[in-house]
Amino acid sequence: MDDKIYILVVEDELEVMDALIKDLEEFESYFPVEAANNADEAREVIDYIIDHDHKIGLILCDHVLPGQNGVDLLIDLQNRPEVAKSKKVLVTGQAGHEDTILAINKADLDHYIAKPWTKEDLEKVVVDQLTDYVINNKKNLLPYMAILDTEKLSDAIRTNQMTDH
């Protein structure tokens, strides 16, 4: 069970990126965090992670990026089966109505965080999304009990056949 679950942050403004990374500190020892400044870099990072047989659990994506924008990136990523299962969250203040609808309909968007965000809100979203991801993609849920939604994980264990032996 060597595969790690990554959190990918896609954001071009350095200060915002730093703030996001800082808010994700507590998760780092369980979920390594990788950063990308634009869509192309994001793809490179994703390739690197997939090639090393790891998984991407969560993508926190800004919308206004140099080059391809966040929503289009997320829509494209739906074509990659390994990334289709990842949880996708838009972190932005500048996605218009139509772009957001596109993201929901075509990119399987899981959540939308409007800037500016609070640390508590971000943490809650990360915990919720990763809990769902882990329940649907991992057999052994115990390593995540301490950091993610313990109750939800316990309930999944209750119904998901961890057995006596």
Binding site: S154, I157, R158, M162, T163
Partner: peptide, 16 residues
Amino acid sequence: MSNTATTAMMMTVILP
């Protein structure tokens, strides 16, 4: 029931 399933369920009760 299995001890394990019972424990998992009761965890949801005591965690709050």
